[in-house]
Amino acid sequence: MNAPPSTPPAPDRFPAARVAPHAAHAFGGVWRLTLRRYSTLTHWLFLGGALAVLVLLAIGAGQPGDGARGYVSWLARFYACFLVPLLAFISGGGAIRDDLRADAVDYVFTRPVRRPAYVVFRYVAHLAGTQLDFLLALTVLAVVGLAFRSTGVMAALPLILLAQVLVIGAFTAFGFLAGALTSRYVIVGLLWGGIIEVGVGTVETQLSRLSLIRQVLGLLEPVTGATQAVTALSAPALVALFAVFAVVMVAATAGLIAIKELAGASGRET
């Protein structure tokens, strides 16, 4: 049993795996595990509560005196450029932290899926669920806008929707990286928000281009009516920028998870 081994046998002396790893099937497995979380009663109750709060905020934002412009501006500035990135970041960070918990590490990361591939699969599945949640939220807000007879809402929707899709993709990926780095990923987000988005992003120089929110505000200029001091990127350039940002974040997360030791429930219990 515990006699010193001689030279270890060559791998071909052992039978091949009876089930070969399969990337597409593995993606299906990750997809099922992820979307299952979006179909629970708890999730729908949380979403319902969040939408109710959002509707109350929207009603508050659309009080007489502000007019249609005021509501659309609130939608672009508060909802698309503050609430969506914040929640997407928290959701992304939470998703990857969930995957580093015992119920995933002990069962998922012991399966024959390359860790970088798993991170990509997880990001895509999580992104799909998050986009659907926020699509529902935007629909509700559009209905609230129409209830205020704010005709500008429908005209502004395509741009706001584009901004929402881009922001969710980028900030979910950023949340993934922050969550992979530390369990206190919210602090990373606060630092980023404070230094880059609020600090550098509000300085009227080329440096403000570092701020993703600033870029989105540039995209939404036709909606908000506010003009940015720094020339805004065109929509295709902005899409490319956000896509590159998301890819870099997900790649960094994948690299980090690939080299990380995953100890599961009882890592220090020897």
Partner: peptide, 8 residues
């Protein structure tokens, strides 16, 4: 889901 992750 776990079976699919294993390649099924």
């Amino acid at each position: 889901a776990l079976g699919m992750l294993s390649g099924l």
